[in-house]
Design a protein around this nucleic acid. Structure first.
Length: 195
DNA sequence: TATGAGATCCGCT
DNA sequence: GCGGATCTCATAA
């Protein structure tokens, strides 16, 4: 899809706000993206690609338009859209969205959650869409998981990224202003192990 | 409503 | 062996 190639052409910082309003689809369930974060390559201490290519982040170094999935915290999966030319790692983390199709299925995957919470948060979004590690590296133009251009959003807000340990305050987080499905996380959750 | 802490496993050093 | 781009429940105010 030529439109997709255009959409994903540019640096993560340029592409991230463009993805807002686009639709991420897996089977019956589709989510309209309302919140994303940009991650650069070796330049960016917050990026998985910061310390070079590894087995896990190999997809980030590949061609754009792929889905980069990673497993974290022992139980959660998060999804990124790979952007930038091959060999120049970059990605946009999909942080939150609004379920616009397949509501029933998404609900059944997240029992007890309100509709607006279904995909509010990167790990929740993946669960609602049924995305797992098996989708790492799929082609977003033709694969099981796809992204489709959507309607442009009214207003975009920016701010610092969330949950990163070693990253300075870079306003690389983008969200749809005033959208109720945007995740708002508590500022300080000191990561502590048992005890 | 706000804050604290546990859960749980993969990849890197 | 350690740390993590998180989520959820439990408890306090």
């Amino acid at each position: 899809m030529a439109d997709l190639a255009q959409l994903l052409d540019g640096t993560p910082l340029e592409v991230a706000p463009r993805l807002l309003g686009c639709v991420l689809r897996h089977g019956e369930v589709a989510v309209r993206l309302t919140e994303v974060e940009a991650y650069a390559g070796p330049d960016d201490p917050g990026s998985h690609a910061y310390r070079g290519q590894t087995r896990r982040n190999a997809v980030m170094f590949g061609p754009r338009g792929r889905l980069y999935c990673y497993f974290t915290y022992g139980m959660h999966v998060c999804a990124n859209v790979v952007v930038g030319p091959e060999g120049d790692p970059g990605a946009v983390l999909v942080r939150a969205g609004e379920v616009v199709e397949g509501l029933e299925l998404a609900r059944s995957r997240r029992p007890g959650a309100s509709d607006r919470d279904l995909a509010r948060g990167p790990a929740r979004l993946c669960r609602a869409l049924g995305i797992g590690l098996e989708h790492d590296g799929v082609d977003l133009a033709r694969g099981a998981v796809r992204i489709e251009p959507g309607q442009p959003v009214a207003t975009v807000s920016t701010g610092p990224r969330v949950g990163l340990r070693g990253a300075p305050d870079r306003p690389w987080r983008f969200w749809v202003t005033d959208d109720p499905t945007v995740s708002v996380y508590r500022p300080a959750a000191p990561l502590r192990r048992r005890g």
